[in-house]
Amino acid sequence: MAASAHATAAATGPTAVANSASSSASANRAEAALNASAVAAPDAGGGVDPRRAFLLRAVFAQDVTRKLRVPASEQSAYAGRLQAALGANTLGNLSGEYVVLVDRNANVQALFVYFRAAPADTWQMIGASPVSTGRPGEYDHFITPLGVFEHTPANMDFRSEGTLNENHIRGYGKRDMRIFDLGWAQGERGWGKGGVSQMRFQMHATDPDRLEPLLGIRHSKGCVRIPASLNTFLDHYGILDAEYAALVDSGKSLWLLKSDRQITPWAGRYIVVVDSQRKSRPGWTPAPGGKAQAKVPAGADTAD
Rank of each mutant, 00 (worst) to 15 (best):
V248T: 14
S276L: 05
L230K: 12
D235I: 05
S259C: 02
L254Y: 11
A267L: 01
V224Y: 06
A242T: 06
S220I: 09
P265H: 07
H219G: 14
K252S: 10
G290D: 13
H236E: 04
L240T: 01
A267M: 06
T206F: 02
P288Q: 10
E243N: 11
T232V: 11
P282Q: 08
F233C: 06
P227E: 06
K221Q: 15
D235V: 03
T285N: 11
V273F: 04
P265E: 08
V273R: 02
T232K: 12
D207K: 07
L234Q: 01
L256R: 14
D207S: 09
S280R: 13
G290C: 04
G216Y: 07
S250Q: 13
I271H: 01
W255C: 02
G222Y: 03
T206H: 00
L211I: 14
Y237V: 00
G289E: 07
R269Y: 03
T206Q: 01
I271W: 00
D260F: 05
R278W: 12
V248D: 06
D275F: 09
V274Q: 04
K258T: 15
V272D: 01
N231R: 12
S276V: 11
L234M: 15
R210P: 03
I217T: 15
V248Y: 01
Y270L: 12
D235G: 00
R281K: 09
S276D: 04
G238N: 02
N231D: 15
G283Q: 10
I217D: 05
L254V: 12
G222C: 08
S253D: 11
P286Y: 08
S253N: 13
E243A: 04
G289Y: 11
G283D: 08
I217G: 01
V272G: 00
V274C: 05
S253W: 06
G268P: 03
L211M: 09
L240H: 03
D260G: 00
R210L: 14
Y244K: 02
V272A: 02
G222R: 03
Q277R: 13
V272P: 02
P288M: 09
L230T: 11
D209C: 01
I239A: 02
F233E: 04
D275C: 09
W284R: 04
L234A: 08
R218H: 05
K252W: 09
P282W: 07
K258S: 13
I239K: 02
R261E: 00
H236A: 03
S253F: 11
Y270R: 06
L214T: 14
P265M: 09
K258R: 14
D260A: 07
G251N: 12
K279T: 15
G289F: 09
G289P: 08
P265W: 06
L234H: 05
P213H: 10
T232L: 11
V274L: 08
S253V: 15
R218K: 13
T264L: 04
G251R: 10
P282R: 06
D207F: 04
P213M: 08
G216M: 06
A287K: 08
K221L: 12
A267G: 11
V224D: 02
L215R: 05
